[in-house]
């Protein structure tokens, strides 16, 4: 048996076969190979002269810039600043969205009062809000964290409210029949039934949190990946600019993967029921 040919046992009964191409690049590996192909295309387009621009450096130079940026500490400092703002804004925005979403689900009066305001604010583009936010909150972390929290709030709020409103009225009626206190109803009935919806909103918000943090950093301040990208772009250092974007993308991917793992563990009952 050739060493390169791994042995797999077919369902038909012990038949040996060589690994097919789809075994090597198929399944979960397909995404990886797709990224490799894109990076190769990027490298070739920059090296062959197909695309000539300071804003399109070869990916190999970007890799070198990642190493230099991390070794010099600048890039790591920028990334850690951004991650801090993302985390702080994410926690504030999502926590307030969950609380408000649950509260509004229990009160028609509160819904009628607050929903129009929330729906008016929801479509506002966050970059347009930054100048007035600067006026009230300044240029530092409070403004940037608020920007992230504002962005995160809406997807989580909408999902929470929708989830809480979709609970069968029987559940609420049973809790009321047994005289379950309001807080216990919230904790024991409303929240568990809404958690899958909340998680859906939280997951969507991860990417938005990164985008809004970087957008805020691009407008003001001297730290974070947003500022780093802008300053490198204006300095004509395309490789350094892409290095920051690459690390940001990697961070977003890692955070999302961690979130999915936590979600699967916490919501095992929900996923197994599907």
């Amino acid at each position: 048996m050739p060493a390169v040919a791994s042995v797999t046992e077919g369902k038909a009964g012990g038949r040996l076969r060589r690994p097919a191409l789809r075994d090597i690049i198929g399944g979960k590996r397909l995404g990886f190979w797709f990224i490799v192909a894109l990076l190769l295309l990027w490298e070739l387009s920059a090296r062959s002269g197909l695309v000539v621009s300071a804003n399109w450096p070869p990916v190999s130079l970007t890799a070198v810039a990642v190493v230099h940026g991390l070794a010099g500490g600048d890039l790591l400092a920028a990334l850690s600043g951004t991650l801090y703002r993302v985390a702080a804004g994410y926690v504030v925005g999502s926590a307030s969205a969950v609380i408000l979403g649950l509260l509004l689900s229990t009160s028609a009066l509160a819904r009628r009062t607050l929903e129009p305001t929330i729906e008016l604010l929801r479509p506002l583009p966050i970059p347009a809000l930054i100048p007035p936010l600067v006026l009230f909150l300044g240029l530092d972390d409070p403004m940037k964290i608020t920007v992230v929290a504002f962005t995160v709030f809406f997807p989580v709020f909408v999902n929470t409210l929708q989830g809480a409103m979709s609970i069968e009225s029987t559940f609420r009626a049973v809790a009321a029949t047994f005289g379950t206190p309001w807080f216990a109803t919230m904790r024991g009935v409303l929240l568990p039934a809404t958690v899958p919806y909340i998680f859906a909103g939280l997951r969507v918000s991860i990417g938005l949190a990164f985008v809004s943090a970087v957008a805020a950093e691009m407008v003001a301040g001297a730290s974070g990946v947003g500022y780093y990208i802008t300053s490198m772009q204006y300095a004509g250092r395309g490789a350094d600019m892409f290095a920051a974007m690459f690390l940001l993308g990697l961070s977003g991917y890692a955070v999302n993967a961690g979130f999915v793992a936590i979600e699967r563990r916490l919501l095992f009952w929900y996923h197994s029921a599907k």
């Binding site: 930054i130 100048p131 600067v134 407008v219 003001a220 301040g221």
Partner: peptide
């Protein structure tokens, strides 16, 4: 304390 800014409105 130098704070980089794009100028303009902000």
């Amino acid at each position: 304390e130098v704070t980089p800014t794009p100028g303009g409105g902000p």
